[in-house]
């Protein structure tokens, strides 16, 4: 089953490779991994999307907790939570496609953030399914490139991951 694991980790060089190395060494899946410093610059927050049986997810959280630089680990997908991912997609926009892409972007509440006479860059935020749906709605022949940030997640309401 798919799980979203959030963790706080010391913002030190090599910390990311300790996490990614753990996943590869023990054969765990990583669907996506995002990391950036928090409001406290000495600490980073990482969101890892992974999948596995309950036993494997239990081992993943235990093994992550065992890393000396990891401060806290939460499986935010265990309860109500929000996920968002950012996508930038560059599409060919000429002739009648120009209008069609614009219309589709509007329907998805995406924004066009770069325009040339032959292309648009569309920015879209949402959960993975929404981003997938947008990609599906665009004629594949028009897509020049896509870049996705990977999932960021946060628990709803009182569920706070903080030191």
């Amino acid at each position: 089953m798919r799980h979203v694991i959030s963790l706080l980790i010391e913002n030190e060089s090599g910390a990311l490779s300790r996490v990614s190395g753990l996943f590869s060494a023990r054969g765990y899946n990583i669907e996506s991994l995002t990391v950036a410093p928090t409001e406290d610059a000495s600490m980073s927050r990482m969101t890892i999307v992974t999948s596995g049986s309950d036993e494997i997810i239990e081992q993943i959280t235990k093994q992550l907790n065992k890393l000396v630089e990891v401060v806290k680990v939460v499986d935010i997908s265990e309860a109500a939570h929000i996920e968002r991912e950012l996508m930038l997609i560059k599409v060919r926009a000429t002739g009648k496609d120009r209008e069609e892409v614009k219309r589709t972007a509007d329907i998805f509440r995406a924004r066009i953030i770069d325009v040339t006479d032959a292309s648009y860059v569309v920015e879209l935020t949402g959960n993975q399914a929404k981003l997938d749906a947008f990609v599906g709605a665009i004629d594949p022949a028009l897509i020049l490139e896509t870049v996705r940030s990977g999932v960021c997640g946060v628990g709803r309401g009182d569920r706070v991951l903080k030191l």
């Binding site: 060089s13 090599g14 190395g21 000396v68």
Partner: peptide
């Protein structure tokens, strides 16, 4: 060295 030993130490430092 830190990279090579990472999977077989409890922790390491440079």
């Amino acid at each position: 060295t830190v990279g090579i030993t990472r999977p077989c130490v409890k922790h390491n430092f440079l």
